[in-house]
Design a binder for these strands. Structure first.
Lengths: 222, 222
DNA sequence: CGTATGCTTGACAGTCATCAAAGCCCGTGG
DNA sequence: CCACGGGCTTTGATGACTGTCAAGCATACG
């Protein structure tokens, strides 16, 4: 299959909210995130946005758009990003012709569904510190599955800023700093220089009730 | 196709969290909800649960379980409920044989995905009153699509108790009562006798930034 | 060196959870 | 028929959690 690559600088939108008939991609390198900027409700001033999910190398970007023709959220590059462009029409033909692909797609979508459920439960029921701990553990596990963790010290690359954590967890940047400081003070995590170290996964998991996500075996679908 | 019906009294679990190889259903009559009870984190006392979504007549229950063999959440009957039992294996065979069914399944799952994104954004970014308003508008629209609204007065059946709203929106039952009182005082909604009336949809929508969900055309897939 | 950006910290205010009490509705039993 | 009890809702008082505003630092960059 013909493959087109595209390199996108950090901070650029790869897919726009509401975009129709857009292409879809595999994220080859770098981090991105799905997000939604909310129309201000009455009395809201600041324009907040909700980060719906992080996209890590290997993830699909815009599958929804390929399957339905329209995207319901935007995707933005968090770091510089290399994406691999797919052809939606060819993909749809393949989807129809190949039940195994269809299965794989459904499993991918369902896996995302489950993680979405988990996030909703965490944001709805947990306090700031627990939300943060949960987020970091989930991230760490996803990176592990892709062998992107430096095995020794549980050290992960961490290009996220406070404000990204805030938008992902539904809290203010200031309070993210407080929660992080708390975890640091308890010697549970360390953040420095674009890297994150989880010092005590067990204690973190106990703090927020995190349970590793067994889910379905991970495999690339494209 | 042979169809088995089952009637389930209110308050009973139809699917249990983590259940493997369970059946799946179409919700024929009555309301149910998907939910997750969280393991207590450190310092948590009460056992809270997060309602992930309401299930209304016509919705599928346990599709995830049919496709992957395992459920990641429980489903409980909110009212007395009539479900129609499907055969997971036959369904999977059909899924492989019939691309149109596969498409329909994917669209259903993706529609749920979008609603999940919306809920996350609302719970993460909105205050109590806005969350409640958004929930009620969304519910009203879903019921409209099924012709379950008494057309004249925007009056909906409303079997939910305060505590269900609280568990769905990530707030306390007490505060739900306050938020509802506020909406009532502003003459935006009325609640009585298991019914809900939306007095001013436009004002409600403006309050919480709700945008009707165009999504894909609604059609039954089974 | 000046400016811009992001992180951290403190003070204060608003939102919301918790606890508690009182009213309402309804089924039960006297 | 009416008293009683339990569940649900409403309301108030109080305090915890979190957002906002602001200032101080460190770093990067022109």
């Amino acid at each position: 299959m013909l493959v087109a690559q595209r390199t996108v600088p950090a901070g650029t939108d790869i897919i726009h909210d509401g975009e129709e008939g857009g292409p879809f991609y595999t994220l080859w390198a770098g981090w991105a995130y799905r997000y939604k900027s909310l129309r201000a409700g009455a009395g809201d001033r600041g324009r907040r946005q909700q980060i719906l999910d992080l996209l890590l190398p290997g993830d699909l970007i815009g599958l929804e758009s390929a399957l339905t023709g329209q995207a319901c959220h935007a995707v933005r590059a968090l770091t510089e990003v290399v994406v691999c462009l797919h052809n939606p029409k060819a993909f749809l033909r393949l989807f129809d012709a190949c039940p195994r692909l269809a299965h794989a797609v459904v499993e991918t979508v369902i896996r995302d569904d489950r993680r979405a459920d988990m996030r909703l439960a965490v944001v709805g029921q947990r306090n700031a510190t627990q939300r943060l701990a949960h987020f970091l553990l989930d991230l760490s596990d996803r990176l592990s599955q892709r062998d992107l963790v430096e095995a020794e010290g549980q050290s992960l690359p961490f290009p996220l800023q406070r404000r990204h954590l805030a938008d992902a967890l539904g809290m203010s940047g200031t309070h993210v700093a407080r929660a992080l400081a708390e975890l640091r003070a308890a010697a549970l995590v360390e953040v420095a220089e674009g890297h994150l170290v989880l010092r005590d996964r067990a204690a973190l998991a106990a703090l927020c009730g995190y349970r590793a996500f067994d889910g379905m075996g991970r495999r690339a679908i494209l």
